[in-house]
Simulated scan of single mutants.
Amino acid sequence: MGTLRPRQARDLGMSRSGLYRAAQSGKYERIARGIYRPADASAADWDWIEAATRRPDATICLASALAHHDLTDAIPNALDIAIPRGSRIPATETAISWHLFAKETFGLGRSAISIPGSELDIGIYSPERCIADAFRLRGDLGYELGRDALREWLRRGGKPAALMAIATRLPRARGPLLQALEVLT
């Protein structure tokens, strides 16, 4: 069994207060407000679980996705999660930085991966999308993040045509990426 929410406790023949008592006695671990896991469950990333539970369309992006793809040495101080613009940003207890991305391009370069140690899935952006986003949001993220990720991606054999196919569909990404590719290739 994976994560459990108080409203699902009845399906297990337990009341909400029974779930709270089970958590106090150590049978369940409280991940965040309203999210519990069995104490004997395998290890999992609680930030990922909370993001996927709060928003089924949650997508790992920016520095967190670049770190997952081993394209940066930077260690993000919070999990970067993208959700479609216009969505309500949920209240969370863990270190999650919510980003609102345009609905028209939200699915661009997005795939789903399983959360290790859990039955949940979470979205993640492709390396190409993450690099394009790093260039497009370079004023907020810093100029080095995108440049260093691009350099590592090219070193591993990344194809500039695939990167430009995504960058042309995102605002403010094509020009800076072209300039960086001219310098690096």
Rank of each mutant, 00 (worst) to 15 (best):
T168L: 10
L19G: 02
P6I: 05
I113D: 09
P116A: 04
I83Q: 00
A63D: 06
R33Q: 13
I75S: 11
T92A: 12
I31P: 02
S87G: 12
G2K: 10
Y125C: 02
P6D: 12
D47E: 15
G109I: 00
A78M: 08
S15I: 09
A51D: 03
I115R: 05
P176R: 08
G139F: 11
Y143R: 14
A149R: 03
E104D: 15
I60M: 11
A78L: 02
A134L: 02
A39Y: 08
I60G: 00
P38V: 06
L184E: 14
I81E: 05
A149M: 04
G146R: 02
I49K: 00
L71F: 03
P6M: 08
K27C: 05
R5P: 00
R55G: 00
R33S: 13
A63V: 06
R7W: 08
S25P: 01
A165F: 07
R21K: 14
L100V: 07
L150P: 04
H69A: 06
W153P: 00
L120Y: 13
E93G: 15
A43V: 11
L79M: 09
S15P: 08
E104M: 07
A95W: 06
L145P: 04
S114N: 15
Q179G: 10
S97L: 11
Y20A: 06
L71C: 01
D121M: 11
K159E: 15
Y20T: 05
A132Y: 06
T53P: 01
P76H: 04
L71W: 03
L178M: 12
F106I: 06
G139T: 14
R85T: 13
R55T: 07
